[in-house]
Amino acid sequence: MARTVPRPEMTLAEKAYVPEIVKGLKVTMGHFLRGLFTPETLPVQSYPETPSVIPRNYRAKHRLMKRPDGEPRCVACMMCSTACPANCITIQAGESADDRIEKKPVKFEIDLLVCVFCGLCAEACPVDAIRMDTRIVALAADSREKFKVGLKDLMSWEPKDYPDNDTQSQKAPGGLLNAEAKKQWGIS
């Protein structure tokens, strides 16, 4: 059943065509003059000179958190690779040199081309070993293999780039964080 939608009839001025063209030209000229004399009003971002604002909770490239002695916090429990809906995490477990920790990852690879940046790995991790708060969104490489980032790449972050980010979210004995924890463990 066709329902006829009444269309507005064209007025005589509209039918004459030329006055409408002139109106259109006025609009465009307005935009042009605005852009020419007040270019700061244009909604343009001069990227990359002007940096993009990325929200604090944005899920970007992953990083693996470190223990005070530099080893990864990860115990290769494979919760993240099991939780991952895209199957992009490959982990190979091995014995840790520290026998109190027992298990550590020998190989930890994320294929960033397959990753859907859902954050389920960060949620699944029981030891807060993987986070997605680096705000690194510009991932570029020149071959598909180079997009598979490994253990070294994921741990190549500087603590000083995350000043307000608690790098020690696990409590040390007596409920201590960061500097106190390191002191307790005898690591500076």
Binding site: V75, M79, I101, E102, K103
Partner: peptide, 8 residues
Amino acid sequence: DCPICDKA
């Protein structure tokens, strides 16, 4: 020990 236990 579940994360590091083989029986998990």
